[in-house]
Design a protein around this nucleic acid. Structure first.
Length: 205
DNA sequence: CAGTGGATGCTCT
DNA sequence: GAGCATCCACTGT
């Protein structure tokens, strides 16, 4: 139960509503705004602590070379999940961003686990909270995300997004695991979080 | 700790 | 047939 003060603070605080319009804007702005937002899938999940932005104009994006069967969701409406298989083993979850047609998306790279921890631990085969959802492949395994979630709207079950209560302190750095456009500082993290997939070199914001 | 290499499936050339 | 928006185990300090 929350008390009146907490309710009042959340009702007047800054973060935008997590409706469709939240995703219908520049992907870098969304990647930053998602830090601190709570993501659950069928009730399991936690606080988003690490994201990366990908945009069609830039060569590390799947959409860069045009629309294909795999990346088709990126070319559709903002506010939907783009899920793809990585290295033949893992799934990775992205949120499609706008404006529509920019074929841009935010890769969700790490969560701080908060709900459904027992279930997530069973799916992952680990009980250490720090490695439960710390990495794009790990968090998909923990949340049970597969190809079946590709193209689903983010404002309806099994997805649920909950606004952050306070403006978080953000750290910024280069994206991970890519060979092209490494110079773009399009990775965002929650400052001081123990649940990042990797540490940030530079601390900004 | 840091560094390395294997697993594994699918997309695109 | 190459190349991945990764993770884990294993090596050597």
């Amino acid at each position: 139960m929350r008390n009146m003060d907490e309710f009042h603070v959340s009702s007047v605080s800054l973060p935008p509503m997590l409706d469709r319009t939240f995703f219908d804007r520049d992907v870098v702005a969304v990647a930053r705004a998602l830090i601190g937002v709570t993501l659950t899938v069928n009730g399991a999940g936690g606080i988003i602590v690490e994201t990366e932005a990908y945009h069609q104009k830039e060569p590390a994006a799947h959409s860069h070379r045009g629309q294909t069967l795999r990346n088709a969701v990126m070319f559709g409406s903002p506010g939907h999940a783009y899920v793809y298989r990585s290295y033949g083993i893992h799934w990775c979850l992205n949120f499609v961003c706008g404006p529509a047609g920019t074929a841009s998306a935010v890769l969700i790279r790490a969560l701080e686990p908060t709900t459904g921890i027992t279930l997530m631990g069973r799916r992952r085969g680990v009980d250490d909270l720090r490695i439960l959802c710390s990495g794009p492949g790990r968090l998909c395994q923990a949340l049970g995300i597969t190809r079946a979630h590709n193209g689903l709207a983010l404002d309806a079950p099994p997805f649920a997004l909950k606004e952050r209560q306070r403006r978080p302190r953000i750290v910024i750095g280069p994206r991970i695991g890519i060979a092209k456009a490494v110079e773009l500082p399009w990775r965002f993290g929650l400052a001081g979080s123990k649940f990042l997939s990797r540490a940030f070199v530079h601390v900004d914001e």
